[in-house]
Design a protein around this nucleic acid. Structure first.
Lengths: 210, 210
DNA sequence: CGGCTGCCCTGACAAATGTCACGGTCGGAG
DNA sequence: CTCCGACCGTGACATTTGTCAGGGCAGCCG
């Protein structure tokens, strides 16, 4: 199954040190895999990758410094030969789409059995694509974001919890305009509240780009 | 440091299979530790513990079926000799307090370096208490919940996102009363919104007891 | 060009949310 | 017993939020 030649070099990126170390232990059990680098922040991925030249990078989505998706783009641009496998905590439908668009070769949720991870790494290294089938179905169902640019921006700013007047000031808009965008977003997401709309949009990954 | 006699028997409970397996791999590297059981739901902890008789149980807080805190109580009641080490994703200040009240011997966040985990397990097994010092400080700062029982209940129900009228119907109260409790909670949490108050209360672990 | 669509912006209006003052009950302290 | 404080419950009131109709501006197609 795995040649006895040079092992696959791995970079791990996860903000939770315990999980990172545990994954390293798990993957190191495989003879054809070797962990050459570990980082805890998204903005450390590219510098560390330049130094250690991994074959495959395992990136978490939720990370400080830089989004896992953004880190994927940056890494693909900096080291095109390095494949990316995104390993995320919870399978927000839109994350998969964004990750693939950013150049990831695989997408795995942390619910999957541990034994499958090594196989996923090998498949990605071989140039194949790896996706959770059920998650892929959900992604197709969720579709692309129906929100317009302004609506997304307003909703994103509204996460902070300020009042409509605050948002208006922050975005240099009239208070009524802000409320109108919010209303449109509420309608499109099928929510009842502003808070509800934020939840739905976040769950679908429609608020990503920082 | 560790005697060559019988190893410490461990039970792992975490809803993310990948993390669970990775932790098992990490801990199995230690000669004096052995993982005898793994479960993915809170309500499977006690039955599985009865069967496998572990010395120490590592429980995540966020789990389906039964809260990690509640699982701690249940496990302490069922097998008093089994120590509990709570290993949680994010260190909500109030979680620590609740976990200790429920009978946990230790509380570790997943940000801690992987090498310390095995030591934490050994300390817990030896009858010592293990807590993250910075988290302990935060917990004291956050203090006990200032919310009254009704306020907590209303806030907890409000998480679903319904309108005040919905809450009133669900709780058999007047709509005005619901708004009043909400208002009190908003004041006590220092929030501006209902949504804000929910966030703050959740972050401090004041909404736990299901 | 004229018509059309889609997005952005805005103010007026209705509905919800948050605040306030008040009354009732229970338990402990003086 | 009486007072006092804490909690619960309620309605009236001001503020905020969500909805609606409509105007302005770009791009696209006939």
């Amino acid at each position: 199954m795995s040649g006895g030649s040079t092992p696959i070099r791995l970079l791990l990126a996860d903000d939770q040190a315990l999980v990172r170390g545990a994954l390293a232990a798990l993957l190191s059990l495989e003879e054809d895999l070797t962990v050459v680098a570990e980082v805890g922040r998204g903005d450390e991925v590219v510098p560390e990758a330049r130094r250690s030249a991994p074959d495959v990078a395992l990136l978490d989505v939720e990370m400080p410094g830089l989004d896992g998706i953004a880190a994927t783009s940056a890494l693909r641009a900096a080291l095109p030969t390095c494949r990316v496998l995104v390993v995320t905590t919870f399978g927000r439908p839109g994350y998969l789409r964004r990750a693939m668009e950013a150049g990831a070769s695989g997408f795995v949720v942390k619910d999957t059995p541990a034994r499958q991870l090594a196989d996923a790494v090998r498949r990605v290294h071989a140039g194949l694509r790896v996706v959770d089938p059920t998650l892929a179905a959900e992604t197709l169902a969720a579709g692309v974001s129906p929100l317009t640019e302004r609506e997304t921006e307003v909703l994103r700013t509204a996460r902070g919890g300020g009042s409509a007047a605050d948002l208006a000031r922050a975005l240099h808009l009239s208070e009524g305009t802000v409320r109108n965008h919010l209303s449109a977003a509420i309608g499109k997401t099928g929510a009842r509240n502003r808070a509800d709309a934020i939840r739905v949009a976040e769950q679908n990954g429609w608020l990503l780009g920082e």
